[in-house]
Nucleic acid binder design. Structure first.
Lengths: 149, 149
DNA sequence: TGTTGACCTTCCCAATGTTGGAAGGCGTAA
DNA sequence: TTACGCCTTCCAACATTGGGAAGGTCAACA
């Protein structure tokens, strides 16, 4: 399977696949005689997993750890479990944080009549902001800004 | 007001303030004779606004939009509300995805509750995800990896 | 008055993840 | 065979944040 096909099947761009190989997030696959990368179905599965985790906001480092949970056959299952539990806990906290944000925004949106008038509690709130939703670390933040060309 | 004081008062680091000026998110303020940037209270308000919007997950692009609405005395509250609703929807979808991920990890953890790990169904659950949260552009994404020094 | 220490300035660099392009080699269908 | 679309590598850029160097400035204190 070409890199192009693997890209299409996984939802990860060819560029990204090469990059992931370069940073050793995925292993370097075999090459054809012509030097083309040759992918198998499991590789696509892994890529799809990465894609999904990325979409959910996991960093590459975190995905590395996640992947290793499944990949490393020689690891004691107790270790795997321990790491998984840590990850789950982190996930729960992140979810809570996001729910806070959503709740705040929803509250503001409800209060906002959404008409032609300039009164808008959302802006008022943003302006005054003693920011809430702190307390789970140094601002794990949502960079929305991801290349919308 | 010095940039340092403005930073402290607004919660935006001096580095970031200069950066925001550089990318024209905020206007370039006046300088003292010595070339120091000189901030007024309204500037601090604006910075605080930015800080809070950032914490709530708005992208710089969105903040630009929000700021222009904020600065515009005659804006319609509907415009602001629309932006907020998009954010909420995005948040909701990501929360759902995270919950799914947590469930998968929990499954993995259960799976290896014994001492010997059987072949955990590696990515089966995860891989099935015809990824959600698509359709509003190239994945407004959460870089969890935000410099935890 | 001079010195010290805390501030400011600009500039360059790092890392994160992703995309774009250039320059050239392969593979296949007409 | 030629054309076109894929592949290869390398280099640069984006956005956001922090780190640091080299030098100027300000306020306070001896």
């Amino acid at each position: 399977m070409n890199i192009g096909q693997a890209a299409q099947a996984s939802g990860v761009s060819a560029k990204m696949i090469r990059y992931y190989e370069q940073i050793a997030l995925i292993k370097a696959v075999g090459r054809t005689a012509a030097g083309y990368r040759d992918y198998a179905v499991e590789d696509v599965h892994e890529l799809r997993f990465i894609r999904r985790a990325r979409d959910l906001g996991f960093s590459i480092a975190e995905i590395t750890e996640l992947l290793s949970l499944w990949r490393d056959r020689s690891r004691r299952s107790a270790d795997v479990k321990a790491i998984a539990l840590v990850r789950i806990e982190d996930l729960r906290q992140r979810i809570a944080g996001m729910e806070q944000m959503a709740a705040t925004l929803e509250h503001l949106a409800e209060c906002c009549s959404g008409d032609e008038r300039p009164d808008c509690p959302i802006l008022d709130d943003l302006e005054k902001g003693e920011y809430l939703a702190q307390g789970h670390g140094p601002a794990r933040r949502l960079h929305g800004a991801v290349h919308k060309p």
